[in-house]
Design a protein around this nucleic acid. Sequence first.
RNA 1: UGGUCCAUGGUGUAAUUGGCAACACGUCUGAUUUUGGUUCAGAAGAGUCUAGGUUCGACCCCUGGUGGACCAACCA
Length: 555
Amino acid sequence: MTHENTSGTHSLNFIEQIIEEDIKNDKHGGRVHTRFPPEPNGYIHLGHATSICLNYGLAVKYKGLFNLRFDDTNPESEDIEFVDSIRQDVHWLGVDWENREFYASDYFPQLYDFACQLIRNGKAYVDFSSAETIAEEKGTPTEAGKESQYRNTKPEENLRLFEQMKNGEFEQGTCTLRAKIDMASPNMLLRDPIIYRIKKAHHHQTGADWNIYPMYDYAHPVSDSLEGITHSICTMEFEAHRPLYDWYLRELGIFPSRQIEFARRNFNYTIVSKRNLKRLVNEGYVNGWDDPRMPTVAGLRRRGYTSQAIREFADRIGVARRENVADIGLLEFCVREHLNKIATRVMAVLDPIKVVITNYPEGKTEWLDAENNPENPEAGNRSVPFSRELYIERDDFMENPPKKYFRLSPQKEVRLKHAYIIRCDEVVKNEAGEVVELHCSYYENSKSGSDTSGISVKGTLHWVSAATARTAEVRLYDRLFTQPEPGAQEEDMTTFINPNSLQIVQTFVEPSLQEATLGQAFQFIRKGYFCLDKDSTPDNLVFNLTVNLKDSWKG
RNA sequence: UGGUCCAUGGUGUAAUUGGCAACACGUCUGAUUUUGGUUCAGAAGAGUCUAGGUUCGACCCCUGGUGGACCAACCA
């Protein structure tokens, strides 16, 4: 049975080619089973997100299965807080792992038994050498290592010692269980790698059950194998580990999962390494892991990015084996594309200047009809109040405008969105010569939808009626770094922190925004996409800028 | 200097496995528009790191360079 390329005209990436080849050869009965194996020691970020999309996407595309498996083999650095956040973030990304949520720690008993099997077969031994000695005897890439003095201990003795390790009869650090492979291998990872080490730490899943914990290189292939993972996809730095991955599965004679490596995705204007992310949080450059400037999934979500946009992004940047730096601008394109379809249009003035419509009756309020989304008529309409005193954006007025300026300037006309055409008659300034107020007149017959004035204007401005305006705090975000590759420079990344990555402004917004809810997407007309922040209260509305609207005005 | 991997417009991926390089983002024009958004039409921009070789023909195969990434945690 042949499987068609389900992406139609799209060509296959190298992983899909491998998978389709496997299916063609009826390997594993054509079955496809992938997994995402996060270590619960931090929040997941955009890099993880694209990897999740890759693994889950492949399972979906080939009608296979996807597992979420926590790689929790190091209790000293892991925490239940992170398994909770990861579970939540992966789910938010739109991934359904059904009931297949696993933990490497689920396999501790089997991992132990398999280790005993290796010992019995003379493929593993307990080594009492110190960490320093082991490092010394490991050799260097250019010279072979030396065999440990414990390398030829008899299996029965090793079995006994290993059991003592398990029973906590040795202190942490006194010995390890090592695989007996080849101390002269050009691949350092094959020079008798450690299989188990002693850690007398509390584990978030298994408590105090274990005194020994398996290393990643051992636990990972076995976990993959036990779960029947057909294609174990990871990043390039694990390429050198593959011979070891294969060695364990072969020696144990268990299901031969296959590891496939791809080049990790880097993104410009941000950093994505856990260590540096942690620094940003700990050293106070941002306000926590879910700070909207963080490239964490939690941060992106709070910023107003949608999971659809992230998935689309992951899809568009593709996957390959060469070094790459994806353009974060493409992610912005993807959110705009999605938000344009779903965001409710509203009016908000971020940097207000007052406008008085001198020929409009005092005390009068008109409720004007406004569409919620021109891209989606089903989104319906709402009413916005119009009155004599309004606010418009300060940079929508210029006293001495350049030729192509379409906005308001003395004696010029513009349309107020959903409302009337107005003319600027008078500019009111304070003693410092700053413009503080504009006096305008409106054309009564130019009302939006029933305009008979015959006046044509090139500019349309957003506005908010002063009397009914709500105040709101708006948090304007910019990229966290001013350098395209802040993590790849000589200087410390913090020297490239953008001092203007967060700007908080007090604004006036239309009254309908009082009803805004968490998770709802808005477009502040002519400005950008925004969402309510979790800090918001009915008395103090807070909005986050997700991404600006494209702006082709070069003024 | 031991091993492994990688190299295609500014960026990210393609090129049906050898038939004179495509798509997306970005950039630049123009049209439409009651968002300088969206949409639509179009343009510029690489001859595939380099030098040879095989071939009628090479981004693709071979050899040698060059450049870059990764590998010597009781981390993952």
